[in-house]
């Protein structure tokens, strides 16, 4: 159930962020459901495949999407996840690394300097973000003594907040910063720009078209959903006793996170590429601080 919800609602987040930004810019903005229409249209289109490319070019998006779907089975929402076992956190993170590996190679497959540029930025940010994600999840592991995402979900919540509020705030901020970085949002990347030289994620998929682009667009919507869901389920879970209410609350928090992303994008400028490592490093530093507070 919660997984189906993710599959259907993920593209809505992008629409919501756009509407928030449009509101701040004094514009009406595009329809909330625009991404759904875009996907439907892209799927029906033909593709243009560069003569330089190999099967890696299509395998990249395919593996990314499938890995993210697998990730979705591991995250709890309103109830424990479909699959749960000690150490599923590590599989979750391994799959995210696989997404990066696949996307980057698909970009390098085109032999384009633009896409190489995007790929290079992606791996640099990814390599720095990785410790951040591990450490922030480690804090939650220590706090809840659970080795699975569902376990953390079950033991996190108001009680934990009252016991270790500061730690949770730090973890929440760190995870939010990582969400911005990993999903190519401002201030790390600008998803709206049309300037190849400044992009990260968008420039890596410059040559994908038609159904392959649909797969990529949907996968990035899912990635944003998953990132927001992590915050929602692990940091702000609801345990009201009613599964439906928990589910509703969880989804609500996901949309609140998207709202916050929109707010950040509306009110801040992009960082210079030189400053991005510091931004990502900051999230690792916050997680580390939280971790020291916990294990001291």
């Amino acid at each position: 159930m919660s997984m189906l919800l993710g599959l259907f609602l993920a593209p809505l987040l992008a629409g919501l962020i756009h509407r928030v930004k449009a509101f701040f810019a004094g514009r009406q903005g595009r329809p909330l459901l625009q991404l759904y229409w875009d996907l439907a249209r892209l799927v029906r289109k033909h593709m243009v495949l560069s003569r330089t490319t190999t099967p890696v070019f299509l395998l990249g998006p395919a593996l990314s999407l499938v890995s993210l779907l697998a990730c979705l089975t591991l995250i709890p929402l309103g109830g424990p996840a479909l699959l749960r076992f000690p150490g599923d956190i590590l599989l979750f993170l391994g799959l995210l690394a696989l997404v990066r590996f696949a996307t980057v190679l698909a970009a390098m497959d085109t032999g384009s300097s633009f896409e190489g540029m995007g790929a290079s930025r992606e791996v640099a940010i990814g390599a720095l973000a990785e410790p951040g994600i591990f450490l922030s999840l480690a804090v939650l592991v220590v706090q809840t003594r659970a080795l699975s995402l569902s376990g953390i979900w079950a033991r996190s919540g108001p009680e934990l907040w009252s016991r270790a509020g500061l730690v949770m705030v730090l973890v929440g901020i760190a995870m939010f910063l990582l969400l911005l970085a990993e999903n190519s949002r401002i201030p790390v990347d600008d998803p709206n720009t049309h300037l190849e030289l400044t992009m990260i994620h968008e420039v890596m998929v410059l040559d994908h078209s038609g159904p392959a682009l649909a797969v990529i667009e949907y996968a990035s919507a899912l990635k944003l959903w998953i990132g927001s869901l992590l915050l929602s389920s692990l940091v702000f879970p609801l345990h009201s006793g009613s599964a439906w209410l928990d589910l509703l609350g969880g989804v609500g928090v996901v949309f609140l996170v998207a709202l916050a992303v929109g707010l950040v994008e509306s009110t801040s400028a992009r960082l210079s590429m030189l400053r991005v490592p510091q931004f990502v490093g900051l999230s690792s530093a916050l997680s580390l601080l939280a971790l020291f507070l916990v294990i001291r």
């Binding site: 033909h46 003569r51 395998l59 593996l63 159904p211």
Partner: peptide, 18 residues
């Protein structure tokens, strides 16, 4: 992933340049 990649490659496409 291999399956989806294969399915994608079966979709109509035309060769072009990067």
């Amino acid at each position: 992933g291999l399956g989806l990649g294969h399915a994608l490659s079966r979709r109509p496409s035309q060769p072009g340049m990067t």
